[in-house]
Design a protein around this nucleic acid. Structure first.
Length: 319
DNA sequence: GTAATTTGACCCAG
DNA sequence: CTGGGTCAAATTAC
């Protein structure tokens, strides 16, 4: 197993996780003694922000280590709690060319495919988990050969801020609790300050999922399913993925790794997936402040103090 | 009253 | 001609 990513990125992620650990310990201390709810909320906010940064660092590390493109795996198996990017009904012949460049009056010409993920329903079965953005449904179509209709959404801020991001959501045929979500374009809107971080990195959970999926190990060969040995995707599709990532805010913000290439950060995919899962959970936990410290850490990190003596410590996947 | 959703029609690529 | 994506009027929700 050798998901190889950038070494400096690894150091940054470790540093961020250590800070998260410190904040969690503070939170634990505060929760075990009378304290201000606002203080705890502030700590949670810092934890979320740091986690978000870690996600961004890890994402870019993997992107650079894999040739500059984020890989939205087409063959990764499903994972608990996380979405998986699986062969989808969306990926039929027509969807291999989702970005037609036309001058069609009614068709988007600027939208680019950002990601294609499979997500589980949030709580109920009405729709996939909130991805941090506000969407407005503008259409629904029955798709040939699919059991469920496809919903079309655009960013709520399209009219006010000209944000061109769109997404398509379709319940999977085989599991009604799963949704295939295809994102087009980048968010150019500027939501309120409360969600500024999310705006800066609009699909943190999506990217995490993609990151995790991209490092899924083929258990038969014990070889990571990198783009090189994964079943070949349509060339156009790969090209589009790379284009969308290279132009994304994620790839250009201040935490960038300056084009660093392969490093010596070797990842055990199982551990990585745990970390990714934990990070994704932290950023999507419904009410961090409502949990007590033990529940919070258990929920987010499957943390057992008796075993680990720490929340994160030095992640075991940094070998 | 405003915003969001629904839904049939329209448009275009293949 | 067909299927997918979008529009926009009507409807519904807040």
């Amino acid at each position: 197993m050798e998901g190889v990513v950038d070494g400096s990125g690894a150091q940054l992620v470790v540093a961020e996780l250590v800070r998260v650990q410190g904040l969690l310990r503070q939170l634990e201390a505060h929760l075990s003694a009378p304290c201000s709810v606002e203080l705890c909320r502030g700590l949670v906010a810092q934890i979320v922000a740091l986690t978000d940064r870690s996600i961004g660092i890890a994402t870019r590390s993997f992107s650079s280590a894999s040739g500059g493109g984020a890989h939205f795996a087409d063959t990764a198996p499903p994972m608990p709690a996380l979405t998986s990017c699986t062969p989808s009904p969306l990926s039929d012949g027509s969807d291999h060319q989702p970005f037609r460049t036309t001058n069609a009056k009614k068709r988007k010409t600027t939208a680019r495919w950002t990601s294609q993920v499979r997500v589980s329903a949030a709580g109920g079965a009405e729709g996939p988990a909130d991805d941090g953005h506000s969407w407005r449904k503008y259409g629904q179509k029955d798709i040939l050969g699919a059991k469920h209709p496809r919903g079309y959404y655009r960013c709520t801020h399209r009219n006010t801020q000209g944000c061109t991001a769109t997404k398509q959501v379709q319940r999977t045929d085989d599991d009604a609790s799963l949704f295939d979500v295809v994102y087009h374009g980048e968010h150019t809107c500027r939501p309120g300050a409360a969600s500024a971080a999310a705006a800066k990195r609009p699909h943190a959970q999506t990217l995490l999922q993609s990151l995790s999926a991209s490092l899924t190990v083929n258990t038969d060969t014990n070889t990571p399913l990198t783009p090189e040995n994964r079943a070949p995707a349509p060339p156009l599709q790969q090209q589009q993925q790379q284009q969308s990532v290279s132009a994304s805010p994620v790839a250009s913000d201040s935490y960038g790794l300056g084009g660093a290439g392969y490093g010596d950060w070797r990842c055990c995919d199982g551990d990585l997936q745990e970390v990714v899962s934990a990070l994704a959970t932290v950023t999507s936990a419904p009410d961090h402040a409502a949990m007590d410290a033990a529940d919070f850490m258990s929920y987010c990190f499957d943390f057992d103090p008796a075993v680990y003596g720490g929340i994160v410590g030095t992640p075991s996947f940094f070998l």
